[in-house]
Design a protein around this nucleic acid. Structure first.
Lengths: 102, 102
DNA sequence: AACCTATATAGTAAGTTATCTATATTGATG
DNA sequence: CATCAATATAGATAACTTACTATATAGGTT
């Protein structure tokens, strides 16, 4: 599938969009973490699960969809997995879309 | 549903994205029409159907999804229906998205 | 009025998505 | 090494999406 379409499908879900909005500004939306820096490493699945009020496997599945679209990257530290946005992918995506309005 | 999500869902389909890309630059993608100006009135369902190679009811359904998302407006002339993009909605949408990459 | 043409609607089948529960895995720690 | 905590995987199900065919409707045109 085309990369823009993959991203659009990933974002075309209110729960995933919420998560993206949260993790692009993690300091504003999540508590400080003991392991894993909110900015440098990202936000752990547990915190996202608490905030979005879905079950953990459901969140894991949403995060995989965001990751497969390239919107986030993940890093494992101990037994946490931290997700953070890939701003480069995001800005290219928005750039690609913008021809529609010109 | 939130308006951004409605738009994302409408665009998260390769066929509809193709159609949008075509109708934002109709002169480049469609033949001149006898009734209905490509720019002022939009592109008729028949021309889109020919180009996308889907059946007419399928195209009508895709166009309704784009219209319900606010991405296009429609105008009936005789027994044609012409669709053209709503550039204002498109640019607001892109604007709303862009905070993700900042 | 009958007919033709463009689009709309109805109904359906196949595929995909979103969510859950139950369980497995992985890695740290007492 | 047994246990606990965090995440992953499997499997089920309900809802939604995409496409089709068949048919209806609406408006010109002969």
């Amino acid at each position: 599938m085309e990369s823009t379409t993959l991203i659009l499908r990933a974002l075309a879900n209110e729960k995933r969009m919420k998560i993206m909005n949260w993790i692009v500004d993690p300091l504003a939306h999540f508590p400080k973490q003991i392991d894993g820096d909110l900015i440098d490493d990202g936000v752990c699945v547990g915190h996202i699960t608490d905030k979005i009020k879905l079950k953990q496997p459901t969140v894991t599945s949403h995060m995989k969809i965001l990751e497969e679209a390239g919107l986030v990257t993940s890093k494992k530290i101990k037994n946490w997995v931290f997700y953070k946005p890939d701003k480069k992918v995001l800005s290219k995506f928005i750039d690609d879309l913008s021809h529609l309005s010109q």
